[in-house]
């Protein structure tokens, strides 16, 4: 975790940040801690997955700045429609870590009763919507919820997350088009980690920047350095301010470098160039923000070590709790198919 010489530094003038981002110090330190926690969780869970103690895991390593930066820019009124790597948003917004880990282990204390694969949590407590594994379906759903917010004159906006591969999906096209026509309060957040499993983004579509796709729907689109916590926070905050003022939907493309396999079931050495991982490491969002905090004196080496230990302890405790929890009650298999347990012949 020591800052690498090859690391691309975050270059911000603290006085400029003072002017444009009141309170940024607290925000960055908070964010940094969450990023450390996410990193610790990914490490631990991938280890457990290899040991066969959880069935699957989709690491968010390398994408922490997007989840954390966006989460910190939200208000409690906002809604999140996640993709596969946005669970951290739920945690930053207050969903308890142990509850999330119960989900990863599919225990009886998982709010969804262990019905979904790991990394598909539901957290209604923090307006984090249940996701499927189908690519892009959440995009139109997010537009619909944003329409409902507008119809009911509720504050808040919707963030719909999806990856680079999802820009080819039906719901990307339908969702952005409808948002453009209806001018719903939604921010489309494309986490372009440059790989859809084995397909590189330049073979995903003929256009260089995914943000350009927004113009096809009459929306503004911008590319943002998604490994820069400050940039993400600022861009999301500003976009949401415009959206809340009624300026209509927007799309942000967060340029990322996928630092892990697509999932625990994937072997990227089959398709990535040998130097990909080192290029990605140079953009690792965690040491990037860490070095900035150390350089500006906001973080000391000692505090850094203490935080790392703290988050590790939290993760270990949550894992221990979940591993001790019972599996879902077999009777739960038949619950929640419909509102009432047995309409008609069901369950006989």
């Amino acid at each position: 975790m020591s800052p690498d010489d090859a690391l691309v530094p975050l270059t911000y003038d603290p006085t400029e940040l003072d002017r444009s981002l009141a309170g940024w110090r607290r925000t960055l330190l908070d964010g940094y801690r969450w990023m450390l926690l996410a990193r610790a969780l990914d490490r631990r869970m991938l280890g457990l997955q290899r040991q066969g103690r959880v069935g699957f895991y989709g690491a968010a390593t390398g994408q922490e700045a997007v989840s954390v930066g966006a989460a910190l820019a939200l208000t409690p009124d906002d809604w999140v429609f996640p993709g596969l790597r946005e669970q951290l948003i739920a945690l930053v917004r207050g969903h308890p870590l142990p509850t999330y880990v119960h989900h990863l282990f599919a225990t009886d204390l998982d709010p969804a009763r262990g019905r979904q694969m790991p990394c598909h949590p539901t957290a209604r407590d923090v307006r984090y919507v249940s996701m499927s594994s189908v690519i892009g379906t959440q995009i139109t759903q997010g537009v619909g919820l944003a329409y409902a917010l507008k119809a009911k004159r509720q504050p808040g906006a919707v963030l719909a997350f999806f990856g680079d591969g999802a820009t080819s999906a039906n719901d990307f096209h339908a969702g952005l088009n409808l948002a453009g026509v209806w001018r719903t309060p939604v921010l489309f957040c494309c986490t372009n980690n440059q790989w859809a499993i084995s397909q590189p983004v330049e073979r995903q579509t003929g256009v260089r920047e995914l943000a350009q796709k927004a113009a096809a729907y009459g929306l503004p689109g911008r590319r943002v350095d998604g490994t820069d916590l400050i940039a993400v926070y600022r861009e999301v905050r500003d976009a949401l301010a415009r959206i809340r003022s009624g300026a209509g939907p927007e799309m942000l493309e967060f340029l990322l470098y996928r630092m892990t396999a697509h999932s625990s079931s994937d072997d990227p050495t089959r398709y990535q160039a040998a130097d990909w991982m080192s290029r990605a490491a140079a953009r690792d969002p965690v040491p990037r923000v860490e070095r900035f905090l150390l350089d500006t004196g906001l973080l000391t080496e000692e505090a850094r070590g203490r935080l790392a230990e703290e988050v590790d302890r939290e993760v270990r405790a949550a894992v221990a709790e979940a591993e001790a929890a019972p599996p879902p009650d077999p009777a739960s298999l038949f619950q929640d198919v419909f509102a009432s347990a047995s309409p008609g012949s069901f369950g006989r």
Partner: peptide, 20 residues
């Protein structure tokens, strides 16, 4: 709506999640 069954049903889902 525009001519997209995907869009019609997908947005209806989001509306329903919010109580419409």
């Amino acid at each position: 709506t525009p001519l997209s069954e995907t869009g019609i049903v997908g947005t209806a889902v989001g509306m329903a999640l919010y109580g419409l």
